[in-house]
């Protein structure tokens, strides 16, 4: 899939931002964002709506001027005045910019006119790849949102990019369509395409991404491999009679980031179930039942941003959630 570009991109990081910031008047949309996306990985960029994901992507694609900081693609600086490095990039940002009165096929052919190396066969191949062969002759104004997203993805793939930057690509898709896109992204990654995926659907990231950056209110709150984030977010549930006593005792245990009483149960985060049991027994408290719940990315994210119900991230902020993992956390968040 990848590799037909005439760029010689040998650098390890295909997309990098350094101290990237964007201000709209008094509003600071993005603050000191440092990203480093490695070649061949599927990189998740997650955050709630309004957290600054699209603004960041706008700057990465040379559509917006950073207030400070820089963007590098394949090692080359990208600014709105110099976007040459983007010729090896495919992107989908919001609703794809197609000509509504033209058919899907004609829209792709129009884009292909800009690149002589793309032939009619490639257009058909891409239409087939995104599942639009049947509807390719219809005008885009009659397409559903999901079909437009697929066409946008097709446009992004047309020139066999080495880096794919996608902003909410599953918007408007039904669950089956979402799954298809996820599978498609993994297939692209297997073919060597680097994928930078922005989304607020954490479930999506958990399933396809190798590493993630979490964004909240324009600030980077965590960055690292998905597996590390999830293992750091393990939740231990203990049922016992002396809830209050046990909660007090566990709060003093090193590594514990949150202790939440829930009825007859206590939920403990930050340490393993074995550590909890040993600690309780040492203090004369015998658990009647212990379960070990692996946190999903959503609960990790909510804990980090303090947006979850009953979230308790302690004095050290999100950092304490991942004490043993090589995760970069912005302590100012």
């Amino acid at each position: 899939m990848a590799g037909s570009s005439d760029h010689s991109h040998d650098c390890e990081f295909v997309l990098q931002t350094s101290g990237l910031s964007k201000r709209f008047g008094q509003v600071k949309a993005i603050s000191d964002l440092d990203l480093a996306v490695r070649r061949g990985e599927v990189y998740g960029f997650i955050g709630p709506n309004g957290s600054g994901k699209t603004t960041t992507i706008g700057m990465c694609l040379g559509l917006m001027h950073p207030t400070s900081g820089s963007v590098r693609v394949f090692g080359q600086k990208v600014t709105p005045r110099d976007t040459r490095a983007l010729r090896g990039v495919g992107s989908l940002m919001g609703t794809p910019g197609m000509v509504p009165s033209m058919s899907g096929r004609k829209n792709l052919r129009l884009l292909a006119r800009m690149r002589p190396e793309i032939d009619a066969e490639r257009v058909e191949e891409v239409l087939d790849f995104v599942g639009l062969t049947q509807a390719a002759g219809r005008r885009v104004k009659g397409y559903s949102l999901g079909m437009r997203q697929r066409l946008g993805l097709g446009a992004a793939l047309l020139h066999r990019p080495e880096l794919l930057i996608l902003d909410e690509p599953t918007n408007g898709l039904d669950p089956a369509g979402m799954r298809e896109i996820r599978e498609l992204l993994r297939r692209l990654a297997d073919d060597g395409v680097t994928v930078f995926l922005s989304t607020h659907l954490l479930h999506e990231v958990e399933q396809v991404c190798d590493r993630v950056t979490m964004l909240a209110k324009g600030r980077q709150v965590a960055q690292g491999p998905v597996a590390n984030l999830l293992s750091g977010g393990e939740t231990v549930r203990v049922r016992l009679a002396e809830i209050a006593l046990a909660a007090n005792s566990l709060n003093s245990l090193s590594g514990v980031t949150a202790v939440r009483p829930k009825g007859q149960w206590l939920e403990i985060e930050g340490v393993s179930s074995k550590t909890v049991v040993v600690h309780l027994v040492r203090h004369g408290l015998v658990p009647e039942e212990v379960t070990n719940g692996r946190a999903d990315l959503e609960s990790v994210f909510l804990n980090l941003t303090g947006e979850g119900e009953g979230a308790d991230i302690g004095d050290g902020g999100g950092a304490q959630l991942f004490p043993d993992t090589p995760v970069l956390v912005d302590s100012a968040a």
Binding site: L61, G62, L63, R81, T83, R87, V89, G97, M98, I165
Partner: peptide, 15 residues
């Protein structure tokens, strides 16, 4: 309106 500017510019076409 169609955001086709976004699409073309993000493919490395200069403004």
């Amino acid at each position: 309106n169609w955001r086709s500017l976004h699409l073309w510019l993000s493919q490395g076409v200069s403004r």
